[in-house]
Design a binder for these strands. Structure first.
Lengths: 228, 228
DNA sequence: CAATTTATATGATTTTTGTCATGATATTTG
DNA sequence: CAAATATCATGACAAAAATCATATAAATTG
């Protein structure tokens, strides 16, 4: 089993605040897990006995709406921790985590996290900062969802994907989602989403190849996200 | 000037975790402020040099959308602290705070809050818990905004008002908002909101008297909020 | 208290978005 | 590789919501 002390991903997570001793302790009791695309890491309502540190891959955090649709709240990538809020506030999980790519994650038991949280103020500071950022992002999302029409939201999220997850060799967005998933992120019906992608395509804003999407005109797309 | 040690509101805020010495220190440098309905406490983009502790009254936290509408993200009432996220993550304010009732707030300088945060783990624990709850609420709001139609969102928020802020002597919701403000909370156009209230009125779900709203059928309203 | 402004209300219309139906492509599986 | 299944795409229509216009009521102000 690989060691936390040597894990590159650590540098990007809150765990970077831990010292060698703490890392070794965590390393000794952590559990490496491989998760295939589509598999669920945890589901809303569940109790978590620890947090997951994402080594590779990406997962979506979703919540089931009353109308039966799965809303994507946020994406989590390597370096991020999963389930921090739950462990800290000792609450059940509010969101489901489902892999959208094959993933490697490490499970770190609650007690280790709590101990580090209590004893290492730099670590707790890092975690709190992540929570604060999440809260800010969430507040911004509320405004977008409540006020922007679907077309602008789609443009907004495509640009976010472009900026946060980057492109593959051919210039397509590196994360491939199904149309249904994109609809769940934008907060619209799948058919509406497909129509809008077709429209963006016709207007020359994007180019699609199966599930893959390339943003051809980022300037225009950015403007569209802002409502022009 | 009144003293924090004797302030009843303290019991309901994160400040309850502070000991006498800490409270006296804060009390000595805090500043009491009276804010009239409609006045702004702070605006998005601004820097804050401290947090506000709400003694009485209610304010709305809003964010201006690209389309020029003011979205209400959340309400803050007595016992709550304002600006915690900003002070902790040393960021500019993301939301504007505007009084919807006359308020009394106390301004507590950043340095005092930071010191208490560093030195008193019970206090930081309380603050973190508040942030975690805010995050959970925000995630739930995203789903509501993205997936529910306006009618259901209105029912949902009316019920929240009913449960969180209670009723006056005559059974009307105790917080009075303008139609425009309610629209900004639900995330819709003012005219649409007014139409929906008329509809609720005709159906016997609510009763209005000027700005005041009474929920006549909470059971039905609850069901409506869930999409029936 | 009359005049002005602001907030509320409603009608008419357009735009946006959702739903249902159906066909075309992929993708999976035996 | 063919059959079955899932995904993607598009048309037709219905519903929801925004916008514009205009009227009425309420609040403010000189």
């Amino acid at each position: 089993m690989s060691k936390c002390e040597q894990c590159i991903v650590r540098q990007f997570s809150s765990l970077k605040a831990l010292n060698k001793t703490e890392l070794i302790r965590i390393s000794d009791c952590k559990e490496s897990i491989v998760i295939k695309r589509g598999e669920t890491i945890f589901e809303e309502g569940q109790h978590l006995d620890g947090v997951y540190c994402v080594r590779s891959g990406i997962c979506k955090l979703t919540k089931l709406s009353d109308n039966g649709r799965q809303q994507i709240i946020k994406f989590v990538k390597s370096g991020d921790l999963l389930g921090q809020r739950t462990v800290i506030s000792n609450d059940t999980v509010n969101l489901s985590a489902i892999a959208v790519q094959d993933m490697e994650v490490c499970f770190i038991p609650k007690r280790e996290i709590n101990q580090a949280f209590q004893e290492n103020p730099r670590f707790s500071g890092e975690v709190i900062n992540v929570l604060c950022n999440d809260l800010k992002d969430a507040d911004n999302s509320i405004v977008n969802m409540a006020q922007k029409p679907v077309k602008e939201r789609l443009a907004y999220y495509l640009m976010h994907f472009h900026d946060d997850f980057g492109l593959d060799q051919e210039g397509y967005l590196s994360v491939q989602l199904s149309r249904e998933e994109i609809a769940g992120m934008v907060g619209t019906a799948t058919e509406s989403l497909i129509r809008m992608l077709s429209e963006f395509n016709k207007k020359g804003l994007i180019e699609t190849k199966g599930k893959r999407i390339k943003i051809k005109d980022t300037v225009q797309m950015e403007r569209m996200a802002e409502g022009f």
